[in-house]
Structures are given as C-alpha cells and as structure tokens.
Design a binder for these strands. Structure first.
Lengths: 148, 148
DNA sequence: TTTATTGCAAAATGTTTGCATAGCC
DNA sequence: GGCTATGCAAACATTTTGCAATAAA
C-alpha cells in the first residue's frame, strides 16, 4: 500500500529516512490520524481510529509507532495526573489546558518570548531540551467550541 | 500511637480536620516521609521508607494517603513521560527539572510574576486551578549536588 | 537479501477496588 | 458507637516484551 499522500506525511518520510528508520503504512496511518483529529488521543484511541482503515494493525504496533513519531520529533507526549499518555502533533511552542470537568485538552499558544523567559529560570548547568506547561482547571461553557 | 510532633505535621492535622478527615498515624508518617526527603518519590518509594517505622502499613494505604494529602493541598503530584506518579510537598510556586540521565527531579523556583505572566496566556473563559511546568533535559556533572 | 518492523500473546508495571476489621472522633 | 480508614488480595488499566513472520530498502 502506497502513501495516501495527504499534506504533512511527506515530512514523515523525510524524518524517518533521516533517522535511518523505515516508512511503513502503519506509521503513516497513525501519523495521519493524529494530524486529522487533534484532540490529544490516547494510544488506545489512536488504535480505534486507525483500525477503521487498517483492521489488521495491532495495539503494540500503535505504541511502537507513536514512540517512533515522538523520537522523530513529529509528535509530543502529554501526561496528566491521571490516565494514559496522550499524543499531540502540534509542534509549535504551546501549553496544554486540561479541563478537569470534561477531560478535554486544549492547546494554548505560548509566545516564544515567554518560552524564553521561562527557560531563563534554569540555573547554570541545567540544559532543557523541552519545556512542558500544563494548566489544570475548568472552563466556561461558552469556550467549549474550539477544542483542538 | 500519638502524633510524633515534628514541625509541619501540625498543618496536617489542621487540614484534615478542615476537610472532615481523620488524622491517622499512616497519614502522618507518610507526610513526614515526604517532608523529610524531598526527592519526589514514587508511591512505592514512599512505601519502602515508611515501612521502616511502620512495617504493617500496606501499599494501598500509601496510595490512599497520598491521594488524601493531594486533596488537602499539602502535596502535589508530578508526572513525567514515563514511569509512575511522583509526589512533592513543596507548595511554593515552582517548576520541575527532570534530568533524563539520572532520572532525578529538581525543584526550580518560579517568581510569582512569571507565574502570573504564564497564567495570562489563557484566553477568556479558561480558569486554571494549577499550573505545572516541567523541564526535560540534562545537567552538567557539577550541578548534581543540590538535589532536593 | 538483509534487517527493521509487525502482530500476537504473555508479562510487567502501576494503580484501584471490594470487603472485613480496626480505630479515630 | 458510628463511620472512616486500613490491610489484604484480587482486579484492572496501561504499557512493554519476546519471538516468529513479514516486508521495506
């Protein structure tokens, strides 16, 4: 099965090749699933979604592929106090807002300037590869539309 | 067995009473263990530590008590990409630096002013009860002393 | 052809639950 | 004394692993 040629998956082939990894249909379908519905799904939710077009895929492969995508810097992992790891293909600097009521997660833009300010909090000798910012709280009913 | 009357555990009794919860020796010993060695232990590590002075305690009780302490706002939960939840009795506004090499976690002070700046990133309708900031990276050998 | 990746099943890990007993208020 | 919290064991949820078969390069 060849690539279904969406927009971004070209980047996937490039990144995989760059790391000496193979471009498999499983990796493609999983990456496209993440790009298609950016609601921070769990591995199991990704599994459900990709099985629609690839019924033979296994859950272990979903875990493996997600791990691969994370290592290729195409996907970020997101962890909350409770529950399984979630996956996010938004590579722009951003924070996450976790609505305790609905369980939904929203991306919150963070200007590079603020990111830099935060990074400067680190004392000498500390080198951060990534910075994770998570808000926990509730949101007004009205704001519940723009879920990404 | 009465309270071993350390310094902080007085706060524990107060917070528990305020929530209509009971002050048990298990809750005290666990809270004191967290205050005593602030290296962000897992539930299992807390279990090991408190069993020294209370061999009869069960792991389930450790989980229950930690949950109670979190609900009383005496302890924060910390989650990383991988591995079990960790617990932190530092209530001052701070971030966490997670050293991928050693697995150690260090507290990083965050001035209230910066915390406020971050909170202002939220659009209208979002109300954050807490903000979690985690750095992932490595640190120079020299800086490895001041582990809290 | 070579070697990474997949799918399956089983194991490991981390956490929660049900219930009888103990003990705080 | 009433009712919450404990201890135990079993259940549960999530993730990882071992290995033979498959398929990408």
């Amino acid at each position: 099965m060849r690539s279904s040629s969406s927009d971004h998956p070209a980047k996937l082939a490039e990144r995989l090749a760059h790391s000496g990894l193979r471009n498999t249909p499983q990796r493609e379908v999983i990456y496209r699933a993440l790009l298609g519905k950016r609601d921070h799904p769990t591995a199991d939710e990704v599994y459900s979604r990709v099985r629609v077009e690839m019924p033979s895929i296994s859950l272990a492969t979903v875990y493996n592929c997600l791990e691969t995508l994370v290592q290729c810097d195409l996907v970020r992992q997101v962890n909350f106090e409770r529950g399984p790891t979630r996956y996010c293909p938004n590579l722009h600097p951003h924070a996450h807002f976790h609505d305790e009521q609905s369980g939904a997660t929203h991306d919150i833009d963070v200007p590079a300037e603020i990111m830099e300010r935060i990074r400067e909090l680190l004392p000498a000798g500390y080198a951060a590869k990534s910075i994770e910012i998570t808000f926990h709280g509730r949101m007004a009913e009205a704001a519940n539309e723009q879920a990404r």
